[in-house]
Amino acid sequence: MKLNSLLADKKASILEKWFDVIIESYPPDTSNFLKNQSNRFANPAGSAISQGIENIFDELLRGLNQGNTLQFLDNIVRIRAVQDFTPSQALSFIFPLKRIIREELTVEIAGSQLSDEILALESKIDDLALSAFDIYMKCREKIYEIKANEVKSMTFRLLQMANLINTEGHESDFKGNDKLKIKRGEVKK
C-alpha cells in the first residue's frame, strides 16, 4: 500500500488542514474565534473534533473498523447535531478530506500509479459520510426521543393518576396536561 505510507507521512499536515476546514464551517463569528492556531479553543467541541478526526484518519489507513470508526465519528457528529447547522452543513466536514488529500499528494499522484488506490480511498471516505449521516439521524432522533421522554417522565404520575381521578372539567394550563386526554386504561407503564 504505497498510498497508505504516503498518507502516514503527510498525516500531520492533512489533519491540520482538515481541522481548519471544520473550524471554518462554524458560524462566521465563531470561526473567527477558533481560527487562531495557538488558541483555537474556547469551545469543547474542538476537543472531540481534533481527537475524532485523528482517530478517523488512522482508521481510514487501517481500513475502517466499523465499530471504532462509528464511535469516533459519533463524537464529532453528536456535537454538530445540536449546533447551528443544517444537516448538510453538519456533515459537510467529511468531504473536504478528499480534496485535502489530493492537494497534499499532488506531486505523488501525478508521478505514479496511485489513481486506483486514491479512488478506493475516496470511496471509503464516501462510506464514512454515509455512516455519519446515519449517526446524525440517530442523534436527531435521540433529541426528539428525549423531548418525548421528558414529557413522559413529567407526566407519568399524572397519567398514573389519570386511571384513578376524574379529569373531566379540569381545564389545566399545564402543558403536559394535554396528555391527560388519553383515555383511561390506555396508560400502562
Binding site: R40, F41, A42, N43, P44, G46, S47, S50, Q51, E54
Partner: peptide, 10 residues
C-alpha cells in the same frame, strides 16, 4: 481559567 485544547484534550 481558560478553556482550551491541549493534546486533543479539553
Amino acid at each position: 481559567l481558560k478553556t482550551q485544547l491541549k493534546d486533543g484534550k479539553l
